[in-house]
């Protein structure tokens, strides 16, 4: 007991130090979003708030005919639709793999699991070549369709069904005459709650943060997600130094909702993730 008590103040200092490294850059972003271009350089302090937050916000959303607002909407569409549909698809396969017996079940699971190990970077360029053969590059579909597939989601869904959906319940449903699909939608899906939240969140963040795929696929700036838009702006500091303030406040606007959502839903995905970890 003595040992533990002695190590506690040390642990506390370590924890505060570690947390600072992770949080301070985000904090710096918040502070910087309140500054003018000149103040960014003249007063680079970590606590020197200024008063130009609203001005910067107005410039951000009016720049280039309101490009930024459009990028935000695009990101919401890509990540929102991609993650909702993707989660449903993963849940369906994970459920089938967990609860049904069919020929090729193990082979299917192994092939999907191998997909977890395929680097998206190795897929993006071949996908571009394929889509350009079909004349589908520079469309919403070129970003949305490949984003629907998440092998990791299938794995997490299977683990979640194993843990949260008892076989007895499904047998009872079958005896009561419920069809397989109805059992899936009305009984299994609601029971998978935390698991579904985990799959949804990780896929949402994955698509929201994706950079390479839209970079390869899209030419038209009106189709950009917010990451690609900010990247393009950040290449233009030298020509237009006022871009820096917009890039900073744009980074904040595009990131903060995701961080807040993630942290607030922590108790859901903690359960979902720990189910996966125990299994792994």
């Amino acid at each position: 007991m003595n040992m533990i008590r002695k190590s506690q103040p040390f642990n506390l200092v370590v924890l505060v130090g570690i947390s600072a490294y992770f949080v301070l850059p985000i904090w710096w972003l918040v502070v910087s979003a309140t500054k003018t271009q000149g103040e960014l350089v003249s007063d680079a302090g970590l606590f020197s708030f200024s008063t130009h937050f609203i001005d910067n916000l107005i410039v951000l959303f009016s720049r280039g005919n309101g490009q930024f607002g459009r990028w935000l909407v695009n990101s919401v569409v890509y990540a929102g639709i991609g993650a909702i549909v993707g989660t449903l698809l993963s849940a369906a396969v994970g459920y089938a793999l967990s609860k049904y017996e069919f020929r090729g079940r193990n082979a299917l699971f192994n092939i999907i699991l191998a997909g977890v190990l395929v680097p998206p970077a190795a897929l993006a360029l071949p996908l571009f070549l394929m889509f350009s053969q079909l004349g589908l590059t520079n469309t919403i579909w070129s970003v949305l369709l490949p984003s629907l597939v998440s092998p990791l989601g299938v794995y997490l869904a299977r683990v979640s069904v194993d843990a949260a959906v008892p076989n007895e319940l499904l047998e009872a449903a079958s005896i009561d005459g419920a069809s397989g699909l109805r059992t899936f939608f009305a009984i299994a899906l609601p029971l998978m709650g935390p698991g579904l939240v985990t799959i949804f969140l990780f896929q949402f963040v994955g698509i929201w943060n994706n950079f390479l795929l839209p970079l390869v696929m899209l030419n038209d700036a009106w189709l950009y997600p917010v990451t690609l838009g900010l990247y393009n702006w950040s290449g233009g500091y030298i020509q237009d130094s006022t871009l820096a303030t917009s890039v900073l406040i744009g980074s904040l606007v595009s990131t903060l909702p995701v961080i807040v959502g993630f942290v607030m839903l922590q108790r859901f995905w903690n359960t979902g993730l720990s189910q996966g970890a125990v299994k792994a």
Binding site: Q8, L15, L230, S251, V263
Partner: peptide, 28 residues
């Protein structure tokens, strides 16, 4: 060392994961 501190540290340490790599590179 302290339940509340541990919980906060957990959230702090994890929060950059939600920051897009592009934005992380912009900030740094």
């Amino acid at each position: 060392p302290n339940k509340k501190v541990a919980k906060l540290a957990r959230a702090a340490v994890f929060s950059p994961f939600a920051v897009p790599a592009v934005v992380g590179a912009i900030i740094w």
